[in-house]
């Protein structure tokens, strides 16, 4: 009996230690998040319900808990809301279509070039996001090779341009976020045991059926991770629309940008930021629920 009790105390002290340790490990991260995420978010939430100080200067606001700010902000930017999600969805689908074959080839067919190809996938990160987007403008511009080639092939008319268009914005985002799609896809494809593919082949499935029934389902964690990593930043992006778009292709990010920095309308900008965050959160939750990948570990 005494033995059992001593065992119990030991077990307790052990779990006690074990109980504190994770929190200690989490502490630096929690402090960081609290200071640079939670506090600003609370501040932002406060800003979103403020109204201008009567008779005050531009940029002077006072807290009046005016939740109608949200309705006004939404009504003023419905188009940009819609565009943000449409462009982000298109860019995500395009990136998936390009990245899947690429990741598949790297994972299964690249042999000794595997590491080199992976470095090439992340190579664009060695230059700045802004610079890459400007470069994309050059590529699609009059002096690039794309437009003259397409004109020569009569795919586009002699007057048609590619820059300052929705197409340019979507392709720009696709290009910029492609590595975020490729890397998770590669990681999940690479984890597939090639023997399961052989087993599928052995069990009367040809190459296409094997892909449909085994390879693709097993790569779902990568598909989900990749689409989220592409969709979320794409929905909030404003650089591509600013550099590659025109006034009719503005996204919500551009509105928030101009409200904050040009019009100095902090409450509207804050309200829009919150709505964008909420919308992304809801969509992502629904998406993860539906794709049901938590079982696939």
């Amino acid at each position: 009996m005494a033995y059992l009790q001593s065992m119990a105390t030991r077990a307790n002290s052990f779990t006690g230690k074990k109980g504190r340790l994770p929190y200690l490990l989490l502490a630096p991260g929690l402090v960081w998040l609290f200071t640079f995420f939670v506090l600003p978010i609370i501040n932002l939430a406060g800003t979103s319900t403020q109204t201008p100080v009567p008779g005050g200067d531009t940029g002077q606001y006072v807290q009046t808990f005016r939740f109608a700010n949200y309705i006004d902000a939404f009504n003023a930017s419905r188009e940009q809301f819609a565009r943000s999600f449409i462009y982000a969805t298109l860019a995500t689908l395009l990136a998936l279509a390009i990245a899947y074959p690429l990741a598949y080839a790297i994972a299964f067919r690249s042999g000794k070039f595997k590491n080199l190809l992976l470095v090439l996938v992340i190579a664009p990160f060695f230059t700045s996001f802004l610079l890459r987007t400007v470069a994309w403008k050059q590529i699609l511009g009059e002096s690039g090779f794309v437009v003259p080639t397409l004109r020569a092939l009569h795919i586009i008319g002699p007057q048609t341009t590619l820059t300052a268009s929705a197409l340019a914005v979507v392709t720009g985002m696709t290009y910029n976020f492609l590595p975020f799609m490729t890397l998770p896809l590669y990681a999940s494809l690479e984890r597939i045991d090639p023997r399961t593919l052989e087993a599928s082949n052995d069990l009367y499935a040809n190459a296409f059926t094997t892909f449909r029934k085994v390879t693709f389902p097993l790569s779902m964690p990568g598909v989900v991770a990749g689409t989220l990593l592409t969709f979320i930043p794409a929905a909030g992006d404003y650089v591509n629309a600013a550099i590659l778009g025109n006034p009719n292709t503005t996204m919500l990010g551009n509105v928030i940008d101009s409200r904050f920095f040009r019009i100095v309308d902090y409450p509207t900008a804050a309200a829009l930021s919150f709505m964008l965050m909420a919308a992304i959160l809801i969509l992502v939750t629904l998406y993860i629920r539906k794709s049901g990948t938590d079982e696939l570990v």
Binding site: R195, T196, A199, S200, D202, N206, P217, M220, E295
Partner: peptide
């Protein structure tokens, strides 16, 4: 091709479909 043969294999480490 493997899928055209009346042959089935029990693989080393089984190679069951995890999904």
């Amino acid at each position: 091709k493997p899928y055209q043969r009346p042959v089935n294999t029990v693989f080393q480490n089984y190679a069951l479909f995890p999904h």
